[in-house]
Each structure stands twice: as C-alpha cells, then as structure tokens.
Amino acid sequence: MLTDAEIAERTASAVAAATAAGADLGLRSDDPRVLYDVFSVIVHLQPEPVVVRVPTVLPPSYTRNPDVQTRQQRAELAVTRWLAERGHPVVAPSPLVPAEPVRREGFSMTFWQFVEQVPDTNPDLDRRMEQIAQLHATLRDYDGELDFWAPYGSYIPEGLAALRNLPELIPTPDLERAQREWDAIGPVLTSRAAFESAFPGVDVQPIHGDAPYHNMITTPDGELWSDFELVTLGAVESDLAMVGADALAAYDAAAVSIGLRPTDERVLRITEAAGRLAMVAALAMAPELPMLTSGIAPMVQQWRASPPVTAL
C-alpha cells in the first residue's frame, strides 16, 4: 500500500506535469489548484479557464499498454466535443488547446473547460433520469468509433486476475465466486455478436458508461454532464444499474415519451451483476489507492450477500 507521503508525492508530480504540459501549449498557470484527487488529479490551471485531468490510479490494461488509455481518452474527447457542438449540456474539452491527450512525465492527461461548481446540491433523481434519457437519445446519432463495452472487457477480468496475487484484499472463496460469475456473464459483455444473440431486439448504442446519474456538475447556469472516461458502446441498462425501481420507472417513462425503448429486465440484471463485479475488481487498485479498501467495502458486502450469478 502506498503511504500518505507517497500519495502526496504522486499528486505533486501530477500537478507539475499538468502545469508543464499546459505551458508547452501556451497556457500560463501562476497558481495551479487541485480540485479533486482520487483516481485522477484534477488541476485548475489558474488563472486560465482550463482544468487538466491527470489519471493517476489506473487499471492494469492502461498500465501495461498506454495506447489503450490514449484510445479511450480520445474517445472521451471526441464524444464530449460532439455533444457540445450540438448544444447538449456537457463539460467540453478546452478550446484553447488541441482536443488530444497529452503524455508528460509518465502521465496521460486531457484538458477541459473550467466551470464553476455549485456545492452541496441534492439532485432530483427523477429529473436526472429524464436527463439520462435525453442523453441517450442524443448519443444514438453519434457515429464515431467506440469499443464494445470497453469498461467490462478488460477491467473486470484483469482486476480479478490481479487479485489472485493480493490475498490480503479479498478472501479466496470470494475471488473464486467472482471469477465464476464473470465466466457466466462475461461472454455477452465482451462480444457484440454474443450479446445480440442472447438479447435479440435489445439495441446497442453509445452510452456514458459510468453511472451518469452521479456524473453531472451543477453550475450557476445549470447542470452539465461530465466524466465520460468510460464512454463505450453498450446497452442503456448499463447506465442505469442499481438506480432502484422508482428511478427506472422515471427513466422508462421519459425514454418512451421521446421514442426510445424501455429498459429490458434481463439486460438490467446482467449489467447490475457486472457493476457489482467491477466493484470487486476495483480492489486490485487498492495498493495505489488505499482508501478503496474501506470505500468499496459496503458494496462488496452487498455483493457477498446477494445470490450468486450462475448463468444468463
């Protein structure tokens, strides 16, 4: 496990890399300010209206093959720029620099417009579900290149594999159960052809990919979508996993009213199972981010208490 001092040193290195990369792009930053520091260090290059996201805690596939991370970052930049150009409420890439990942001092970073955030807001979940339906409707027209269910294809199996060498983080019976569950559902989440064969009539489209109801920023001018780091092709159910029955009903009503299909119960169960496995797999990053062990513990406990997934 990294110590607090080592994490502070990593944060300082990320800030220095972001500042230097910004300077190379003509951005002046007299007083860089860290806005957030968990999986990424988010740096406001004050006084510029630019925020740099510097991922620091990475899944194994990104560490092993930096091109995989760059590809996903390019997808995120392309999708958010496309949404912004169509007037959809989104935190957009900064127009002051090229919309392209920048690699500096071992970090791959992206540059975004700075927006003022209104703190301590309590979102209306029904309204948030309507906004997700509207986002899905807009994303249906996006024709850029995206991988199929990019978060699941590598993140879960590689995380489970890494946990085999970290027995102090998860008991062996739990890890064996998680692997059996992934073996049962993984084939339809890693192959578009297999998914469409298993769930005929359930269409696949661009989706946010990472619990979008948690990823809106409230600003003085309204709410903006953010954090498209896991944007991917998939079924919309993946964006709605574990929101609860009332929120699903609100989504379905909004979706049907604008010509989208309602959620499919079988697909929802599979994507919720994958979401729980993603929490288990995330423990593999705990050596780089020790807070994960306590932060994820309640979700792992919920998974442990749920019936095992044995088949589609």
Rank of each mutant, 00 (worst) to 15 (best):
L35F: 10
P167Q: 06
H208V: 05
Q72T: 06
A99C: 08
Q69V: 02
G26Q: 10
S294V: 12
G201W: 07
P212H: 11
A254D: 08
A78W: 08
F195D: 05
H88P: 01
R164S: 12
V280C: 09
E176H: 11
D31F: 05
E48H: 05
A253S: 13
V236K: 12
E145G: 04
G153E: 14
P101F: 10
P307D: 12
E265P: 11
T271G: 02
A284R: 03
R71V: 09
M216D: 11
L175H: 10
A241Y: 09
P55K: 02
R33E: 15
M1I: 03
D210C: 01
P200L: 11
A281Q: 10
N122H: 14
A253E: 14
Y62I: 01
E265N: 09
Y36N: 13
R53G: 01
S197C: 09
Q131G: 11
R10Q: 12
P55C: 06
A255K: 02
A255L: 08
T271D: 13
P89A: 09
R276T: 06
T56W: 00
R269N: 11
L135Q: 11
L96C: 03
R192W: 06
A241K: 10
R261H: 13
S191L: 00
Q113W: 02
I156A: 05
R127C: 07
E130F: 03
D221I: 03
G22K: 11
D30Q: 12
Q302C: 01
R104Q: 14
P157H: 03
Y142Q: 09
Q179A: 14
L166E: 13
P98M: 10
Y62D: 06
G222E: 12
P212V: 09
V231M: 09
V52N: 04
L224S: 10
N215P: 09
L146S: 06
E100N: 04
T263L: 12
P157G: 02
N215S: 08
L233E: 13
L35T: 08
D37L: 00
Q301R: 14
G87N: 10
P171V: 07
D239A: 05
V204G: 08
G106F: 00
G244A: 08
A305S: 15
L83S: 01
L35E: 04
